[in-house]
Design a protein around this nucleic acid. Sequence first.
DNA 1: ACCTATACGGAGATATCTCCTCCGATTAGT
DNA 2: ACTAATCGGAGGAGATATCTCCGTATAGGT
Lengths: 235, 235
Amino acid sequence: MRENLDHSFDTASVHPERTLRRDAEENRERILHAAKILFAERGLGVTLDDIGHHAGLGVATVYRRFPNKVALVEALFEQRVIELIDVARAALAFTDAWEGFLFLMKGILTLEAEDRGLREVILGSECIKGRLDDLKAEVAPLIEELISKAQAQGALRQDFRANDVPVLTAMAGAAQEYCGIISPGIWKRYVAIVIDGLKVDRSTCTPLPQEALDQNQLHQAMLGWRTHRLSKGHD
Amino acid sequence: MRENLDHSFDTASVHPERTLRRDAEENRERILHAAKILFAERGLGVTLDDIGHHAGLGVATVYRRFPNKVALVEALFEQRVIELIDVARAALAFTDAWEGFLFLMKGILTLEAEDRGLREVILGSECIKGRLDDLKAEVAPLIEELISKAQAQGALRQDFRANDVPVLTAMAGAAQEYCGIISPGIWKRYVAIVIDGLKVDRSTCTPLPQEALDQNQLHQAMLGWRTHRLSKGHD
DNA sequence: ACCTATACGGAGATATCTCCTCCGATTAGT
DNA sequence: ACTAATCGGAGGAGATATCTCCGTATAGGT
C-alpha cells in the first residue's frame, strides 16, 4: 500500500521547493503560527484539522503544505530545540557556575514548561528519528559539563545528575498542565522549591515567586484536568 | 433516552444486594483484583474489556457486576482514599510536627505515586460526584492543620500551602510516569529534593535515596513515554 | 442425577475521533 | 481574461471504547 498514487494532490511533497503563490505562502505562515500556539497550549495531540481552522483555513490546505503532522512538527520545533542549545551554551559562559546553572534551569524550564509541544518533543522519542533527534542529542553534553562545573565549585549538590534534568522538566510540565491554565507561571513556584533543594549553600530560603492556588482555583484545576474520560458522554 | 430497558441483563444494578452464586462472587473478586493492578499501572483509562481479560473472564461478566466503569472505580478507590485519610490522621499524632509532615508526605506520595489510578481520582474531579468526593474533601483540612503545626514549630517553610500538596503529587506522578517502569521508586529521588527545598533547617542535604537513570535507561524512558501518537500506526 | 435459575463468553452494534483525500469552486498573476 | 495554482468542506477509512445480545455452561438445591 501507499504507493505513489499522487495525482495532482500532494504536489508540495514532490516538488517541495517550487515557489508558492503569494497567497499560499501567506497561508503557510498562518498555519505555522496557529500550530505554534496550539502545540504549545495543548501538545502534539492537536489535529491538523484544528490547526487549519485555527488558522482560518480548511483542512486540505494544511495537508497540502505539510504531508502529515510529523513534517509540521519538525518544521516548527527545529528552531525551538536550537533555542535550548543556545541557552545551554550561554549558561556555560558564566564564571559563577551556580549562576550559570540557575540560568540554565530557568531557561530550559521556561521554554519547556510553557510549551507543551516542545516538552513532548524533548521528553518523547517516538516517531521522530530525524534532524530533531540529532539536535536533542547536542543538549545533554552541555548540561553535563555545566553540572560538573557547578559541583566542582561546591554550589550544586554532588548527587545531582544531568539525567535528572529531563525528569525535572517532566515534573514542572506536570505542574503546568495541572494548573497552568488557572495560574500561568505557577510552575515557577515549584521549580523554586526544587532549586532550593538542589543548592548546597543552605543559608537562605528563596522566597517563592508565585502564590499557591486558592481553594477555588484548585477546584477549577481539578475540573479542568481531564485524563481519560471515565464514561460515555451520556446526559 | 436511557430509560429502564433492563430486560434480564443488568440484574446486579437492580438488586445489587442479592447474594451471588459462589462462582460469581469469586469472579467479582477476580475483577476487583485485576482492576486494582491495572488501574494502578495504567490509570483509569484501561477498558473494562482489558480488566475482564486480565481477570481471565469475558467482558460481559465485568459489565454484569459493575454497570459501568465509574461504579467499578468507586468500589475500588473508596478504600484507598480512606487510607489517605488514615495517613493524614496518623501524621497529626506526631509531636514533632516536621516528623509528622515527613510521614504525611511520604505516605501520601507513596500511595499516589505508585497508583496512577488513585492519583487520577484525587487530582481529577470529573465524573465522580458521589461518595468519593466526600471522602476526598476530608483530607484537605487535616493536611492544613499539620502544615500549620509544622510552620508554627519553625520547621517547614512559611510560604508552603496545603494546596501545594496536590501539585506536588502531580509532579511526583509525572516523574513516576516518565521513568517508573524503568526504575520503580525513582520518584523518591525527586521527592527527596523537593523535601529538602521545603525544610527550614538547611544545615544538611538529605542524601538522595535512588540513583538517577543512566544514559540507556533514560533512552528507554523516552521510548516508552507515549503522549499522543503523532501519526497513524503506519508500518 | 436432574433441573432451573444464574452466570459465562465473545461477537458485534453504536458512537466517537483522527487522519487524510476528493473534487467543485475560487483566485493570483501574466 | 485565461489558466494554473489554490482553497474549503464533506466524507471515507480505520482505531478505539462502551456496552449488549444471545447461545452455552454450570452451581447447587432436591
